[in-house]
Design a protein around this nucleic acid. Structure first.
Length: 562
RNA sequence: UGGCCUAUGGUGUAAUUGGCAACACUACUGGUUUUGGUCCAGUCAUUCUAGGUUCGAGUCCUAGUAGGCCAACCA
């Protein structure tokens, strides 16, 4: 809806073409196939949005399938985390599947291959096999075990399954072509012995199928019509098809693998190994640190599922290399947060203001709109008093006319409050300004309708009443890496590009309405950015994470003048 | 130096499949504004190169060039 006029990406064009020729609409089925060996990240989000987006577009089922064929690396905890992240992104899978559900079927098919002379047990070391494999420019040579009899292969394979051998002693290999220009076709391994407990099948199996043998057959079992993966799997397609040929029944739908380019986000890394190093070397606090590109990190940072989906939708899908600037992701959060967040006031770097002609002990509760974007969000009351906090950066003793803020002898509007004028300021022994004395115009209250209240004042500041202010821990985040492509530099370790200033922790003050803010609740601190309540926040110790700042043209103006 | 994939602005995707290079972001101008936000208006391209076919080429042909992927008992 609304996107009907949008042109199709190449995957959609393939599907449309299939719909015109070989497929009916009810044939369509997709899958998202993560390995439960780590946390999902922004790159996965793109694949999730692609597959589930296709499901939505064609009203077709999408399975969540865990590719759990390597018990050495996989855990139930990752399964749970992945399910949580996919759900949080807003998608519903048709059925929850596991490659391990198919271990018996895969085994039976492997036996069939052996009987058909298409697979054999190799009993060499991995080093020996690596040598025989050849190189991209030289053909491989056959294993001495390549011509074992069907009977011998059957016996050995059964003994492998029965646990009679140690790890590394035998593997089952497909008998294809040791001279193929495609290295993957040089008799790929189908099964290896692994005496490890699996998080679902426990010790039922001690031989485990490899990715290539598993993936296409799993797609076939589930009758997935379009199996979409990233471009580095393109050379696997030939093997995917070969394995399918061995078991394919023309009465059934034949899955096709198609490949798209993985999306690369600037100023971050996404490989599990690298993310793990960031965690282990304490560059970040954990997998859900708000600076991490993991889905859980983005969630804790304050990103919304909608913004991530819109981002994925905007960048689209294609086959060429790419490096997407984070500013595009940031645009999408701002766009969404601008619409949905209530405005509040919080002072990050406080400077005290005393309104000398405001009666001592007096307090007023002023009316403030919750959102200029959405009137239905209503209004709230905020306390005003003689002593306020404003932002340190909002006062200078003297400044040029481009400085729309408070300066000695100058006026400024306090948001939702009065117009004040700076009369004097006091400094500490180091010459740092610690207090500003102002006068206010009692008739200038916002919304009062008086002539004074209607005066046009160039600057408007946010503020918090000292008497009512709630202290809060404010965590400001910046990009984790200073280089747009930290892991793409020859001879440089990505850790060399870690931004030492990616986290800044401040103690600020927020308006009292925030006392009851709940975890993951989001706000716009006016003029300061969008903030999200951290999961570590308590009523006694409020913590706000800055998701992203507002667009700020002031920093640019400053940059030019200085 | 074997095979395969890709090439359109600073970024990402389009181009009715041979017919005025479009959309979004960024950056820059200006306007509006009780957020230097939002919103509104505007500016920013010899489609990797060289030839060719054609009335007409980002799209087709030829030859180059550049980048990426492939030799884990990982996925």
């Amino acid at each position: 809806m609304g996107e009907t006029s949008k042109s199709l990406n190449f995957i959609e064009q393939i599907i449309e073409e299939d719909l015109r020729s070989t497929h009916s609409k009810s044939d369509l089925r997709f899958r998202f196939p993560p390995e439960p060996n780590g946390y999902l990240h922004i790159g996965h989000a793109s694949s999730i949005c692609l597959n589930f987006g296709l499901g939505l577009r064609y009203n077709a089922p999408v399975n969540l399938r865990f590719d759990d064929t390597n018990p050495a690396k996989e855990e139930k905890a990752f399964v749970d985390a992945i399910k949580r992240d996919v759900s949080w992104l807003g998608y519903e899978w048709d059925t929850e599947r596991y490659a391990s559900d198919y271990f018996q079927q895969l085994y039976d098919w492997a036996v069939l291959l052996i009987k058909n002379g298409k697979a054999y047990v190799d009993s060499q070391t991995s080093e020996e096999m690596a040598v025989q494999k050849g190189t991209p420019t030289e053909a491989g040579s056959p294993s001495p075990f390549r011509e074992r009899s069907v009977e011998e292969n059957m016996q050995l394979f059964q003994d492998m399954k029965a646990g009679k051998f140690e790890e590394g002693t035998h593997v089952l290999r497909a008998k294809i072509n040791m001279a193929s220009p495609n290295m993957l076709m040089r008799d790929p391994i189908m099964y290896r012995i692994l005496h490890k407990a699996h998080h679902r099948t426990n010790t039922d199996w001690c031989i485990y199928p490899m990715y290539d043998w598993t993936h296409g057959e799993s797609d076939y079992i589930e009758q997935v019509s379009h199996s979409l993966c990233t471009l580095e799997f393109l050379p696997h397609r030939e093997l995917y098809d070969w394995f399918l040929d061995q078991v394919y029944n023309p009465a059934q739908l034949r899955p096709k693998q198609r490949e798209f380019a993985r999306r690369n986000l600037s100023h971050t890394v996404v490989s599990k190994r690298k993310l793990l190093r960031l965690v282990q070397e304490n560059v970040v606090e954990g997998w859900d640190d708000p600076r991490m590109p993991t889905i859980s990190g983005l969630r804790r940072r304050g990103y919304t599922p909608e913004s991530i989906r819109n981002f994925a939708d905007t960048i689209g899908i294609a086959k060429r290399e790419n490096l997407i600037d984070v500013s595009l992701l940031e645009f999408h959060v701002r766009e969404h947060l601008n619409k949905i967040t209530p405005r509040v006031m919080g002072v990050l770097d406080p400077l005290k203001v005393v309104i000398t002609n405001y009666p001592e002990g007096k307090e007023e509760w002023l009316e403030a709109e919750n959102s200029p974007e959405d009137e239905s969000m209503g209004t709230r009351k905020i306390p005003f008093g003689r002593e306020l906090y404003i932002e340190k950066a909002d006062f200078k003793e003297e400044a040029n006319r481009k400085f729309f803020r408070l300066k000695l002898g100058g006026e400024v509007r306090l948001k939702n409050g009065y117009i004040i004028k700076a009369e004097s300021c006091t400094k500490d022994d180091n010459g740092e300004i610690i207090e500003v004395q102002c006068s206010y115009d009692p008739k200038s209250l916002s919304g009062s309708g008086t002539e004074e209240s209607l005066r046009k004042i160039k600057g408007t500041l946010h503020w918090v009443s000292v008497a009512h202010a709630l202290p809060a821990e404010i965590r400001l985040y910046d990009r984790l890496f200073t280089h747009e492509s930290p892991d793409g530099q020859k001879d440089r370790d990505f850790m060399d590009f870690v931004n030492p200033a990616s986290l800044e922790v401040l103690t600020g003050y927020v308006e009292p309405s925030l006392a009851s803010a709940q975890e993951e609740e989001r706000f716009q601190f006016q003029r300061m950015g969008y903030f999200c309540v951290d999961r570590q926040s308590t009523p006694e110790h409020l913590i706000f994470n800055r998701t992203v700042g507002l667009r700020d043209s002031w920093v640019k103006i400053q940059g030019k003048d200085d």
